[in-house]
Amino acid sequence: MLTGIVFDVKEFAIHDGPGIRTTVFLKGCPLHCAWCHNPEGISPKPQVLHAPSGDRVAGTVYTPAELAWILNAQADIMRANEGGVTFSGGEPLRQARFVAATARLLRGMHILLDTSGYATKGDLRLVVALCDMVYYDLKLIDPAQHRRYTGYDNAPILHNFHVLGGLGVPYVVRVPLIPGVTDTDDNLAAIAATVRGAPGLLRVDLLPYNHVAGGKYAAAGMTFAPPYDEARPLNINTAVFTEAGVPVHVA
């Protein structure tokens, strides 16, 4: 039986898309970003979080029907408030069949995919075809840098970005600003060049780094050792986007 593993279902996720929506956090991510703020989202297995507020297991296994039942219970409310469901993670496309099967069962809700883009073309197409909007992360354009900070090559991400443009679903490119890593003028300019004129692009969201990124590592039994200086002031360069004619927003 098809099942998926989810590490959280959070209602009223204000920053995860339009209207009132619920975000489903899918567990498991192929990347290992040095700044990942959801360490419990990386492993695809259930794990115990030892938080000061007590232990709790992160990772619940659902069938698509079970998850859809929870989400559909509030479908009327989501619809009345211009919202719906966001699939985030971890990397939701790692469980593309589960996400697609769940999305097909949702009753008329706005569906948003929040992805790193690190997936097969087929998985991307499968899920995006069921979505109303996509949040697509672009972190680093230089392949060596990308390998260094996320552990993997960005070729699939850049390739999928072009695939996405042809799917006819509007999307927002999201750039986490990591001090001295992703916020350099070079990288931002390269991102601007990549997205410039891309069909379907709504805007670029710059997400300023926040110093509590590593907050959950201890609870997940992991250590947070950022290979960059967290205290370094951010370079929030919106001009490179504006000059390239790309709408940009600092979140």
């Binding site: 703020h37 959801n38 507020s53 926040n210 907050g215 959950k216």
Partner: peptide, 22 residues
Amino acid sequence: PERHKNLIVRVWGWSGYFCELA
């Protein structure tokens, strides 16, 4: 912390449970 498990704080592009932060 045991009294505030649902307390949510914003941590850049996301929100987290305050009590689960170190």
